[in-house]
Each structure stands twice: as structure tokens, then as C-alpha cells.
Design a protein around this nucleic acid. Structure first.
Lengths: 128, 128
DNA sequence: CTCCAACCTGGAGCGCGCTCCAGGTCAAGC
DNA sequence: GCTTGACCTGGAGCGCGCTCCAGGTTGGAG
């Protein structure tokens, strides 16, 4: 159960085939195993990395930094401190990002309330 | 107190001069007043729009949609319903965005905890 | 054995949102 | 009046993260 065709890896990870190839090309995903004929075979380990990449990407980490993290992991056990630090710094940035997003969301909600006061009765009750 | 030089508008809005010119060029910001010599003079109203644009941009609204909103506002009172709807739809997307960000942040925190369990004692107490 | 969908490669192209540049103009201070 | 720094324009360029393409290969089904 640990050998996935490219299309299956794409389906499971939510990345496109092109993105998977791109990630390997730029050295984000380590060299993926191949069949005798040269076609990629993704392992569960690869899939695990892709889940992590999605997490980091969704939280706004630049690819260069993901690459650095992946490289550190490949470099072995003695890089765990640096990896930990990298993730902590990133988490701090994400927290800031969340605070900003919340603040601007509140601002947006206020703007929406302005329109709702204008019209007297709201036309629908779409957004809670 | 309602006439700001470009550099002052940039300082107050947090957008660069180039961005202010760009926003006017693409019709996001309505035509800005000029001196006899052709230099821009931003009003408090312009500044208000810039605050809104920052809110929308920070929450991930594409420029095309901001343009649409700005155009509706210029079109007059009879577009308030559509503007309201546009903001509501956006707010819903922002909520989804916040949920995703929170979920991935939790995932990230879990990963960080993994490293902290590895090293036994955490090296520092940087991030709460 | 044949077929054809899925896969391969290197490299070009794209969409977004700016950002920078050259070459010229404006206007406030001395 | 002169200087100088802020400003003007149109248009090219950039950085990111993919996305698409041409032209060729692979490999499982029938």
C-alpha cells in the first residue's frame, strides 16, 4: 500500500501533477522513486511531506523556506533544533497574520452593518 | 486639512507612491484631484477609500473585485444592495479562510510539539 | 501485438500585484 | 532666478508559484 501513481498522489495531496513535478524539480520534494521506465512512484513518506507542504503553504510560508526546512530534514537528526526554530518563527508570523485577518474582518463586518442600517431591513440572512 | 501631497497620502495609507498611482491608473481609486501643474492632491475621501482597499486587500480580495465595488459606489445610491451582497460574499470567503488558517496553524503547532517532545526540554520559551 | 491514456522532459508562458525606470516637469526655499 | 527634491508619464520588468506546451515514452487493457 505504499506506492502511488502520479495521478493518485495528486488526488490524495490536492496538488496538481505539474505542481508535484515542479516541487521535485526545485528540490522541495526529494527525488521520487521511479519505475524501470522512469515513471514516478510516490511513497507514503512523500505523501506525508506533501501534507506538510500544504500546511506550510496554506499558512503563507514561501517556497524557499519550505525548501530550507526539507533540506534540514534530509541533513539528519542534528538539525532538529534549527527545524524547530524555523517552525516556531513561522508560527509567530502566522499568529500575526491571524490577528491582522481578524482585525480586518471586524472592519469588514462593520462596513456590512453600515449597509444593513441603510436599508432598514436586510434583504436576506445569508451570512451569520 | 483635506489636501494631502502624494508622499503624505502614501505615509498615511501605507501604500507606496507607485501603488497609489497604479490604483488610480487601473480605475480603482477614482481620478484624484490635481494642482494646476498636474500634481496629485489626495482628499480625506481618497484616504478613506485607501483604508477600505487595505482592508479588502489584507483579507484577500482580488483587485478586479475591489474595482467592481468602487465602480458600484461611483454609480450611486441604487447600487447599495449589490455592494452589500458583494461584501457579504467576501466576508463568507474570509471566514472560510480564517477556518483554514486556524486548522493549519493547529497542525503546525502539533508539528512543533513533536520537536519539543524530541528534545525533552525546550531550548527557549519564544512562542506562547 | 496494438492501442491509448497516462506519463515523461525541458523550457516557455502566465496572472497577479506591484515596482522600477527614463526622461521630463513642478514648486518651495534661498 | 535658481536649485533641488518631490512629482509626473508611459511602459517595461519582476518575483512568485505555478501552468501549459510540444514532442516523445511507458505500460496495462483487450
Amino acid at each position: 500500500m505504499s506506492g502511488y501513481a502520479p495521478s493518485e498522489a495528486a488526488r490524495r495531496s490536492g496538488f496538481s501533477l505539474d505542481t508535484l513535478r515542479y516541487y521535485e524539480k526545485i528540490g522541495l520534494l526529494a527525488d521520487v522513486e521511479r519505475t524501470a521506465g522512469g515513471q514516478r512512484v510516490f511513497t507514503d513518506d512523500d505523501l506525508g511531506w506533501l501534507v506538510l507542504f500544504r500546511c506550510l503553504r496554506d499558512t503563507g510560508m514561501p517556497i524557499a523556506q519550505m525548501r530550507r526546512y526539507a533540506q534540514l530534514a534530509r541533513d539528519g537528526e542534528h538539525t532538529t533544533d534549527e527545524r524547530h526554530e524555523l517552525l516556531c518563527h513561522h508560527a509567530a508570523r502566522v499568529e500575526e497574520q491571524m490577528r491582522l485577518l481578524q482585525r480586518q474582518y471586524d472592519h469588514l463586518r462593520e462596513k456590512i452593518r453600515f449597509y444593513e442600517r441603510l436599508s432598514g431591513t436586510a434583504p436576506g440572512s445569508e451570512a451569520g
